[in-house]
Design a binder for these strands. Sequence first.
DNA 1: AAAAACCTGACAATAAACTGAAAGCCCCCG
DNA 2: CGGGGGCTTTCAGTTTATTGTCAGGTTTTT
Lengths: 219, 219
Amino acid sequence: MRLLLVEDAAGLGEVIRDQISDEGHAVDWVKNLSYADASLQVTQYDLILLDLMLPDGNGIDLLKKIRESGDTTPVIILTARDQLSDRIEGLNAGADDYLVKPFDLSELSARIAAVSRRYSGNPNPIIKVGTLDVDLNKHFISREGVAINLTAREWALFEAFIQHPGNVLSKSQLEDHLYAFGAEIESNTIEVYVSRLRKKLDKGQLETVRGLGYRMRSS
Amino acid sequence: MRLLLVEDAAGLGEVIRDQISDEGHAVDWVKNLSYADASLQVTQYDLILLDLMLPDGNGIDLLKKIRESGDTTPVIILTARDQLSDRIEGLNAGADDYLVKPFDLSELSARIAAVSRRYSGNPNPIIKVGTLDVDLNKHFISREGVAINLTAREWALFEAFIQHPGNVLSKSQLEDHLYAFGAEIESNTIEVYVSRLRKKLDKGQLETVRGLGYRMRSS
DNA sequence: AAAAACCTGACAATAAACTGAAAGCCCCCG
DNA sequence: CGGGGGCTTTCAGTTTATTGTCAGGTTTTT
């Protein structure tokens, strides 16, 4: 595996790098965000270890940037023990895991192993849904080579259907999927988004089951 | 999402269950490993929250068993702060994540959200009724690959017959199935719906038993 | 042949869903 | 810190599908 370590503390960085090297992985170690940013332009890494507290800015921004670009390289963030909000923010920004400093090296190893295992199995599954080609990891859809751009909500809705192909999903189920944390919705938002999704990608796949919900035919 | 919570501590379990429910997920809460084992046989969960310290054994074993069976349902393990080795062992046994007790509820939420991003759908039993293929969960009927769309009432009626294959069902029984208790019906509604059902899917399966009711032959 | 039971096409009322447009929100940029 | 653009949410008017009922016809039973 090829890892990128973004860590400004000299001592800690060295320890981590040595540990990872000992396990047979390649490590690039950069000490600030601008270098990290640059490194990411050039090379494909299998895993990124990202310290959130860096002298020249907030690692969260880099993480967001990575995810927004559609890159799904696993990211493990490193945070101080008392930065709970950072951890949550980090996970929500798309981090795959975190480690709290100071951490045990064997724990780091286990995390790296776990994350890499998660991703090694299916490198880039492309699902066919009707005439659509869907790359779930990259959040990318195309039909006959033509890209179809969805907004975040549109994608979330689409994803719900993808994850339950052929199932009838009720509006409240879809709401749960779109608004993860109990947020209530008091309008016909789902209908509106179904309408938009259809306009963008329907060739009859998204059907209404009156009184029950919606279903996407996957064949 | 459908979650399985394996946790013996009554207080903590309750808090977790409530939190998850509030977020719109379905939770099954079991308090020991044998129940957990049994639950897993029966149902497909989207995510499992597993306390490693249980009265009747080590959760790691359950986790290993799950993974050895080829099941990839995401598992988040719950451990005490000082059980570092457990955490590592858990991750290596195939856990997707862990939470250290005591943990913040918002952290739990973030973790669930992170893990649930990668959960996927599950297969469904398909019943054969004559020449019809019926997927009860998906509310979907087809004959020779051709979808047959039923309205809510039509489906409800069909369901009644499915649930009592070969039985003669009287009109009043069918009414009870279609309409809430007490709701009286003062016309030949059932006859009408039987007629509609036949038009949509009958190849002689739905037969009239004069004076008694209707019966669906399932073979 | 009359009565009983059942079948089915048509219809109006109702309930559900669709969709264009406006308002609100949020993030980014200067 | 204010403005702009894109995304999200709400609203409201319209369209569509379903439903329960009836009426007249058909079949079965006696």
